[in-house]
């Protein structure tokens, strides 16, 4: 059985791996590369726990084949903090209790970062629609939305 050899960039580091065609990027990240921050909630594109950024686009890791990663630039939750220095979104999520069990959190953080990277001044409605593909069964969403709105304001302030 022939495996596909893939050369890609993950969180700024060049990475090579071999994968079966049926393996998703999420499978490769978690099972082969030990990057278990991205979660599998559903495996069918519904929950967003597997959110990663590929060539600047937010996508579901469970809906992309590992083989498709050839030549791509991938960003995962593991690349979000700079060492021990948490990203403002990570800090605020903790401070504002925007998580409980935490399984949805990496996905929400990656998706929220993708939003703020392209729209530093979103309305609450824009945040809610952007995150409509991320499901959380614990928080009731409100704390998450507040944390994202707060960080957006904070980042605009520091950007001045």
């Amino acid at each position: 059985m022939s495996k596909t050899h893939v050369t890609t960039t993950i969180n700024g580091e060049p990475v090579e791996f071999l994968c079966d065609t049926s393996q998703t990027v999420l499978d490769v990240l978690r099972d082969q590369l030990g990057l278990t921050g991205s979660k599998e909630g559903c495996g069918s594109g519904d929950c967003g726990a597997c959110s990663i950024i590929v060539d600047g686009r937010l996508v579901c890791g469970c809906l992309m084949l590992g083989a498709e990663a050839e030549g791509c630039r991938i960003e995962t939750i593991e690349g979000m903090a700079a060492g021990d220095h948490l990203h403002p979104l990570q800090k605020r999520f903790v401070e504002m209790a925007a998580l409980q069990c935490g399984i949805c959190t990496p996905g929400f953080l990656v998706a929220s970062k993708a939003l703020l990277d392209r729209n530093p001044n979103p309305t609450e409605t824009e945040v809610r629609y952007w995150l409509a593909g991320n499901l959380c069964r614990c928080t009731g969403y409100d704390k998450i939305i507040r944390a994202v709105m707060d960080v957006a304001a904070e980042l605009r302030e520091t950007a001045r």
Partner: peptide, 9 residues
Amino acid sequence: IGSTQVQGR
């Protein structure tokens, strides 16, 4: 069609 993530693809 779908979410932001689905739109990406």
